Amino acid sequence: MTQRTPDLSELSVLAIGAHPDDIEILCGGTMALYAEAGAKVTFAIATNGEVGGGGADPAKIAAQRFDEAEASTSRLGADLIWMGFPDEMLFNDRASRVAFIDAYRQARADVVFVHSTDDYHPDHRIAGQIAIDSRIPAAVPHVRTRYPALDRIPHLFVMDTLGGISFEPEFLVDISRHQALKEELLRLHASQVEWMQRAYGDDYIAEARKQAEVRAGRTRWDFVEGFRSVPTYPVTGGAELLPGDWRAAAE
């Protein structure tokens, strides 16, 4: 069956991250492409990120990370949904399922980007599983939450893992024109730039750049983000929903 090429300006795109800055690291360039094309872009962040910092007061860390997430989404022209679950303690239960369903519904999502269930961090894995499990219920009217059900089941793309470990991309998106913006968004998460350097000796912006270079591989592009399509029934879309220049990884 021939797929109609969609008008990206008509799409509502939702990216769900476990922590503030996860989305920027794993699909920030792709979100910039959607925003450039006129799509409505929403970041939904599951946890407060309150243990990801060196301060003595986790509540102050959470407040700072919220401010940083607001600065990043504002710079991109995206909306922000802040779920507020505890960092390092995200579980797949009724409360989290309802919150994720409401994120789908609040964003009126047509396309959703989610964590891999094979990523290194338990919050990432759990967030990915909840997001996948919430896809169909988000469009079921008798699943009643704060927001009305979606009119149709959205399509899901799985984001790369941190460092690309245990992940084979199915599609590669050229983010070369927006790599600088991606790094700008990451720098707005200033507490994390400092914390990762102090706690782990890790320049995480440089690591994100390196991953985008490695994913570019033998393509003609300089920087790439990789994704897989969630193929579960019912199939409601595919690679035609990706923005900008993209190619199948197997080409």
Rank of each mutant, 00 (worst) to 15 (best):
P137M: 08
A216N: 09
Q211Y: 06
Y104A: 00
S229K: 09
I153C: 05
A109P: 00
Q211W: 07
H189S: 10
A32T: 14
I130A: 04
V111Y: 02
T117S: 12
E68I: 10
D57C: 09
M196P: 07
F85Y: 10
Y147N: 13
F167R: 04
G226I: 02
D133H: 09
V214W: 10
V158Q: 05
S134E: 09
P137N: 08
A107S: 14
P234A: 11
D93F: 05
V143E: 12
I23C: 04
M31Q: 07
N92H: 15
W195R: 04
P6M: 05
G53L: 01
W82R: 09
C27H: 02
L150P: 00
M89P: 02
L156Y: 02
G163I: 02
E207C: 06
V214T: 14
M83H: 08
P6Y: 04
I23D: 01
A15K: 00
H124P: 05
A32S: 14
L80K: 03
I165Y: 12
D87H: 07
S74A: 15
L8W: 03
A44R: 00
L162I: 14
E170L: 11
D133V: 05
P243F: 07
D93P: 02
F223D: 02
D7I: 11
A95N: 13
Q211K: 10
V158M: 12
A37E: 12
I136E: 10
M159W: 03
I23F: 08
K60N: 10
L8I: 13
E194W: 08
D203E: 09
V224P: 01
R4K: 12
P234G: 11
V114K: 01
D21V: 05
A18S: 11
D67I: 06
E68L: 08
F43A: 09
E36W: 04
A32E: 04
A62P: 04
V214Q: 10
D93C: 12
I61R: 06
D102V: 05
E88P: 03
V235N: 13
A127P: 07
G84T: 08
D118G: 07
R65N: 09
V13E: 00
A199Q: 15
T30H: 10
R75L: 14
